[in-house]
Nucleic acid binder design. Sequence first.
DNA 1: AACACTATTATCCTTAGGTCGAATGCGACG
DNA 2: CGTCGCATTCGACCTAAGGATAATAGTGTT
Lengths: 232, 232
Amino acid sequence: MENAKLIIADDHPLFRSALREAVTQLLPGVTIVEAVSFQSLQQSASENSDADLILLDLNMPGAQGFSSLVYLRAQYPAIPVAIVSATEEPAVIRRSLDFGAAAYIPKSTSIEQIGAALRSVLDGGVWLPEHIPATSANDEEHKERELAQRVASLTPQQLRVLLMLADGRLNKQIAGDLEVSEATIKAHMTAVLRKLGLYSRTQAAVLAQRLLQAENASLLSNDETGSEPEAA
Amino acid sequence: MENAKLIIADDHPLFRSALREAVTQLLPGVTIVEAVSFQSLQQSASENSDADLILLDLNMPGAQGFSSLVYLRAQYPAIPVAIVSATEEPAVIRRSLDFGAAAYIPKSTSIEQIGAALRSVLDGGVWLPEHIPATSANDEEHKERELAQRVASLTPQQLRVLLMLADGRLNKQIAGDLEVSEATIKAHMTAVLRKLGLYSRTQAAVLAQRLLQAENASLLSNDETGSEPEAA
DNA sequence: AACACTATTATCCTTAGGTCGAATGCGACG
DNA sequence: CGTCGCATTCGACCTAAGGATAATAGTGTT
């Protein structure tokens, strides 16, 4: 695996260079491509579609939340994606896997552990920190995880259609953007609705909004919902 | 103003009773109705539509975010609403005003200050803690504030339609829920789109989702977006 | 080469969505 | 008390959306 090619996508220069340092040391002879934003990541990925791994920071400029992960998985299903993130929320970790991540590496992970993770992923396996409970506690998360998996099953074009839908665009407009006919968009739309188990574009738009956009309510609110215990 | 009638809506019993205590002391002879959830608030409000003021906690069970405020403003435009909240985020305060709140009282406010606030609001005025900058820093917030004001201009029925739309419901389903014809819902929908400056229900659904649901990305992310300064 | 999957498009048809105009009813204001 | 404005309601009419089916083509796998 000395000739591996990695893409590192992180907007934080300091951490990016530390990561590059660690990777270079762990995998001698590795080729590294860096991306500092979602835009440059798209660029780098399309120019290096033969990459063996992408180290991805959620919350990069241009793509909060899981949209960058989902995009990569849909666009380049063959390239495993390892999430590198500051948060260690089990809900975030689980959902990352649901969206198709091959590993989740908290930024607090030791160099040795990172090495183990990289080897595991380059070998086609998965890697997780310690023992993250695989099952989610509450019902709400269950439903959202299932939806996340459904979103992950979308093809690249279907995903693009969904994302544009989440911007409130009409079929005709999406067709123009993607330079295909409206009939094609309708076909994709039908497929998206089928895969997500919905029956209207509005539902799909709302769902995509909730699921993909910024680290949102349902993930954060786990710490805040429910009434606090209190004295009389 | 001894015969004033107030509705206190807060799911936290401890704070609710403290607030009741303070109000009783500040306004002798006042009548107080309490609500512990959004549901019970709806009940209390409909049974006391002659109330002079509603003290509202954002983030009650059943209605995170601004939806409860927007609902009250649309349903009972004549009753001023004073927000009572733990957060002191200027963005939250400004948006509360955009949505039609008459006052914003942080839970850290002193009894005397609360008294001043109540008198001001019962007198038809507004009240704010200290000096909150009226202008918002970034462009993003500007746009969202303008949209908030547009949402605040919706009529009760239009708002109900919008909220159900944000759940992904079809016109036919909304018509069934509200027990009117589908044609009526379409008319409301048209009015909503006009007022919000949009041209499709999908846009409206996405927007309502962003704007009304839990203290969301755009409000929280002010503390998180933007690249951190760092050394080379 | 055969197969599976994705993408593209077209046609036909049914249903959902959205605009316009109009009627009703209610409260404010002179 | 009449009238003005506004919210609500609704029908008629046209456009957008979505399902079904089928055909063509490229891609990658077996």
